[in-house]
Amino acid sequence: MILKKIYLSWRPGKGDGRYLVGVFSRENSSGDDILFKYQADEVVKAKEKGFYNYPEFPDFDKEYRTNLKTALSLRLMPKTRADRNNYLSFWNANVNGLDWFDELGFTQGELATDTFEFLAEYPKKHNGIGINFVSSVAALSHLKLATDCVNIGDKLRFELELENKFDKSAVKIFKRNDFIGYAKRGHNLFFHKVKNDEIDIRVTNLEKNGKMNQIYFSVRVFN
């Protein structure tokens, strides 16, 4: 059990900004005692863009504590799936000791039928071992990067953008001196806990079809 907090992210559509409309918190280290509640300020902004609610959590003023795993079961890869190990490996989630809550955060719980994501606030280390997770670059649709701007295995770096008027926790991602996008909201909070020389950021996968659609990268904290 590694994760203590996962943000429920929503956006109107692909390419739009993310709103962290809710947060799941692990109440104690015993595992399954999870609390979900909405973040009122983010909900207000998201409603202006068309947000209603997360269907299984309809009441904005309620704190949800029971049957959360059942409510989120479609977001988790079934243990009977033949490709489960490959899926977990893609997300660096095939390590011992992860429970369903950790798996949800590491794999982000995306479905093709909506625009929700489950974005973990990663610790720097767990039990003295550096964290290792996978994320993807945000804002690609706005930057219109060349399809050959990065390659699998490329080393990346980050810079905090403290004067960003839309998100005070914004983090810019670079290949050398070339700006390639932002860290996702939620994941960006991790980068405020570390320095570039404490971590290794590498491109792990690319999706492109005439344009750069997605850049996945791994983050590993040095022990």
Score class of each variant (00 low, 15 high):
residue 1 M to C: 07
residue 2 I to M: 07
residue 3 L to A: 05
residue 6 I to V: 15
residue 8 L to A: 15
residue 9 S to Q: 14
residue 11 R to C: 11
residue 11 R to A: 11
residue 12 P to Y: 04
residue 14 K to V: 13
residue 15 G to D: 09
residue 15 G to L: 08
residue 25 S to Q: 04
residue 26 R to I: 07
residue 27 E to C: 05
residue 28 N to D: 15
residue 30 S to C: 03
residue 30 S to A: 14
residue 30 S to M: 09
residue 30 S to W: 04
residue 33 D to Y: 10
residue 34 I to F: 09
residue 36 F to Q: 07
residue 43 V to F: 02
residue 48 E to W: 01
residue 48 E to G: 03
residue 48 E to F: 05
residue 50 G to D: 06
residue 50 G to K: 04
residue 52 Y to D: 11
residue 52 Y to T: 14
residue 53 N to W: 06
residue 53 N to M: 01
residue 56 E to K: 13
residue 56 E to L: 10
residue 57 F to H: 08
residue 59 D to V: 02
residue 60 F to M: 08
residue 61 D to M: 09
residue 62 K to H: 13
residue 64 Y to M: 01
residue 66 T to L: 13
residue 68 L to F: 07
residue 71 A to G: 12
residue 77 M to H: 10
residue 79 K to P: 00
residue 80 T to D: 15
residue 81 R to W: 13
residue 88 L to W: 10
residue 89 S to R: 15
residue 91 W to Y: 15
residue 91 W to V: 06
residue 93 A to E: 06
residue 96 N to C: 08
residue 99 D to L: 10
residue 101 F to M: 07
residue 106 F to H: 07
residue 106 F to V: 08
residue 107 T to H: 11
residue 108 Q to Y: 09
residue 109 G to S: 10
residue 110 E to Q: 12
residue 111 L to E: 15
residue 111 L to N: 13
residue 118 F to S: 10
residue 120 A to N: 03
residue 122 Y to Q: 02
residue 123 P to Y: 03
residue 126 H to K: 09
residue 126 H to M: 00
residue 126 H to L: 02
residue 127 N to C: 07
residue 130 G to M: 04
residue 135 S to E: 12
residue 137 V to K: 03
residue 140 L to C: 10
residue 140 L to E: 08
residue 143 L to S: 06
residue 147 T to C: 08
residue 147 T to Y: 03
residue 148 D to R: 05
residue 150 V to G: 11
residue 151 N to W: 01
residue 154 D to W: 05
residue 156 L to N: 05
residue 157 R to Q: 14
residue 157 R to K: 15
residue 157 R to E: 13
residue 158 F to G: 01
residue 160 L to V: 07
residue 164 N to S: 10
residue 165 K to H: 09
residue 172 K to V: 00
residue 172 K to D: 09
residue 173 I to A: 04
residue 178 D to A: 08
residue 179 F to Q: 02
residue 186 G to A: 06
residue 189 L to I: 02
residue 192 H to V: 09
residue 197 D to S: 12
residue 200 D to A: 12
residue 201 I to Q: 06
residue 202 R to D: 02
residue 203 V to S: 03
residue 204 T to K: 12
residue 205 N to I: 02
residue 209 N to L: 12
residue 209 N to H: 12
residue 211 K to R: 12
residue 211 K to M: 11
residue 219 V to K: 00
residue 219 V to D: 01
residue 222 F to P: 03
